[in-house]
Every structure is written in structure tokens, then in C-alpha cells.
Amino acid sequence: MAGVIQAGGQTKSNTYTGFGPLLLLPSWLIIGFFLLLPVGMMLIYSFLTKEFRGGVIWEFSLAAYDQFLFDRGLFGDDPPKIEWTYIGIFWRSIWQAGLATVLCLLIGFPTAWFIATRSGVNKSIWLFLVTIPYWVNLLIRTISMKFLIRDTGPINEWLMAGGVISEPIHMINTAFAVQLGLFYSYLPFMVLPIYASVERYNFALSEAAADLYASRWTTLRHVILPSVKPGIVAGCILVFVPSLGAFLAPDLLGGAKNFMIGSLIEEQFKGNAGNWPFGAAASMILLSLVLIALMFYARSQRQQGHF
């Protein structure tokens, strides 16, 4: 942003005072309309009474949160115990999303580094190649992945034709397939922000570190990583958060056998359950968990004096 103002060459402080608040209007409209309003509605719905087969009755109820927390047996009249079902579903999602983030980082960081250190035209070509899959809809990409890895798919057929294996490796409809789908879907979200950070990194710093007898490992840990950290953090958030709510990969690659948070919520709106308040409550709990995690992160950063 600062760059834009400098490029304009006009930074008189009193130029925009009359319109300042008005100029913020688009942002407020976007935040209000696309963020606050839907989240607010969801919050309200999560405290309403469910209507049979979808819809809500406008009466206050804690039933949705109760259902999330307490197990009252098949018929709903056992003494309440802690409900592990949804905790289990959340844990599975967090684990899968976390693993996808780590894998994306392990592959994404060297990739971004490689691209950022190419010269002019090559850099653009590599970047272009990274974004190409994004021209195709996520659904199509996920289905293609399914074709590739299934028992009768090309990967298994090539391996069998080459005599590497005699029985197909069973990949489809497993947790591995879900992980592969998440990793593949969100990898560019890791590469691009890290690339942007590495691009701005001043390589003279690495030389300076080397001059001061820092090993390569020390340079990476104490010079490079702190400088490109904003890109890594942005990439991790961009991979982790959508992975957490993904339902295409679990449905298509995982065979819809085990709910993830996204498919659990989808089922409340699209499935037989038709339990909108519970779907809203699960969404609110997910949102709160993500916000709490981000707040803890921001706090730890402030304590380290990074902000």
C-alpha cells in the first residue's frame, strides 16, 4: 500500500480528509455483507429450535450445543455422557488438515525458493506453471485424482505392467487418498505466499551470515526463516483453514465413509438429518476454534515483539 502512495507521488496528509470515512465504505460493505451478516445469521440459527426436515422455529434453544457435547444414547433418554462422536470427527479433520499443512510446507518451501531464485523470464514461467491447475475447477481436479489412484487407474496399471507390483495398491477410499487430495488441492496456496516473501528477501543477508561463519543450517534457521516467516505463516493459514472444512476430498477420494467437519455440516443441511441449528452450531464451534488458535498465535508473536 505504501508503495502505491509513493508511486503516486502525492502524500499530502489533508487531501482525503473529507472523504476518508466514505472511502472505507466498500471495505465495510464487503466485511459487513460477506462476513458479519452470514456469521451473525449462523450464530442466531445455532440457538434456534430445529424444524423437522430442515428449517428453524424461532424459539431459543440450546439443543444444538447439547447435541454436540452430550451423548444421550440411541433414543435420547440415557443419562448424558460426554459425546465423543463429534470430538472424534473434529480431531480427524484437524489431524488431516495439520498433516496437509506440514506436507505442503515441506514441498512448498523448496519449490517457492526454487522459483524465487530463477532469473526473470524463467521465474514467470514457473509461477505460471504453478497456477495452471487453478484454471480447472476443484471438483474436476479431485475427480481426476480419483481416476489416477483407483485400483484400475493408470498408476496401478503402469506399476503392474512394469512388474513392480502384482496386486494393485489400494489407495482410493482411504485416509491416504483424502490426505493426497488435500495436499494436492492446496499446495499452491503454500507456494505463492512463500514465493512472495522469498522474492523480497535480501540475499546479501545470507552472504553476510556466511561471512560471519554461520553454517548453512544456521543461516536458514536464524536469517532466512525469520525473514520469510510472514509468507510461511500466511501459507500455513491458507492451507490449514480450507483443509479443515473441505468436503470434496473426503467425499470423492475418501468414499464419504467417515465424516470430516465439512461433510458433517453438509449432512445437516443436505442430508436426511435436516438439522440446521446443529449445522450452524458445528460451524460456530469450528469458527471459534480457528479464531482461538489464531489469537494465541498473534499473542505469542506480540510477546516475541514481532508486531
Binding site: 426436515r53 440411541l74 462422536t85 467417515n258 465424516f259 438429518a273
Partner: peptide, 17 residues
């Protein structure tokens, strides 16, 4: 009925948890 549907939903969620 609503009462039975609730049990069906629980069975289905247990099946896919």
C-alpha cells in the same frame, strides 16, 4: 415420524463418525 427420524439420524451419524 419425527421421533423415529431422530433415531435414524443417530444411527446414520454413528455409521459415518
Amino acid at each position: 415420524s419425527e421421533e423415529v427420524q431422530k433415531v435414524y439420524d443417530t444411527i446414520w451419524t454413528n455409521l459415518k463418525k
